[in-house]
Simulated assay, not measured.
Amino acid sequence: MFIRNENFKQYINAYPVVSSIIAINLIVYIMTLIPGIGDIIFYGGMSVNGLIAEGEWWRIVTSMFIHAGFMHVLFNMFSLFLFGPELEKIAGKVRFITIYFIAGLSGEAATFLLKEPTYASVGASGAIFGVFGAFGAILYHNRRTTPQLRQILLPIIVISVIMTFLQSNVNAASHIGGLVGGFILGLVYFTPKNMLRWRKY
Rank of each mutant, 00 (worst) to 15 (best):
G50W: 09
L51D: 02
L51Q: 12
L51T: 06
L51Y: 13
I52W: 03
A53E: 15
G55A: 12
G55C: 07
W58Y: 15
W58C: 03
R59K: 04
R59W: 01
V61F: 07
V61T: 05
V61A: 08
T62M: 14
S63A: 10
F65Q: 09
F65S: 11
I66S: 01
H67K: 07
G69V: 06
G69L: 10
F70L: 12
M71W: 14
M71P: 13
H72A: 09
V73Y: 00
V73R: 00
L74S: 12
F75A: 11
M77E: 09
M77K: 02
F78E: 14
F81K: 11
L82H: 03
F83C: 03
F83T: 08
F83A: 04
G84T: 14
G84V: 14
G84L: 12
G84R: 00
E86W: 06
E86S: 12
K89T: 10
K89A: 14
A91V: 02
A91F: 03
A91T: 06
G92Y: 01
G92S: 02
K93W: 08
K93E: 08
R95C: 01
I97Q: 02
I97H: 06
I97S: 08
I99P: 05
I99F: 03
I99S: 01
Y100A: 00
F101Y: 09
G104L: 13
G104P: 12
S106H: 00
G107M: 01
G107C: 00
A109Y: 05
A110T: 02
T111C: 10
T111N: 11
L113W: 04
L114A: 10
L114Y: 14
P117A: 04
T118H: 03
Y119T: 08
A120S: 09
A120N: 05
A120T: 07
S121A: 10
G123M: 07
S125Q: 08
S125V: 08
G126D: 01
A127Q: 03
A127T: 13
A127V: 07
I128G: 04
V131F: 00
V131R: 07
F132A: 07
F132D: 00
G133H: 05
G133W: 00
G133C: 01
A134S: 10
F135R: 01
G136E: 07
G136N: 10
A137E: 00
L139M: 04
L139V: 01
L139T: 07
Y140G: 00
N142S: 04
R144C: 15
T145L: 03
T146E: 15
P147D: 06
P147F: 14
I152V: 14
L153Q: 07
L154E: 15
P155A: 07
I157M: 06
V158P: 04
S160V: 05
V161G: 13
I162F: 11
M163C: 15
T164Q: 08
T164N: 08
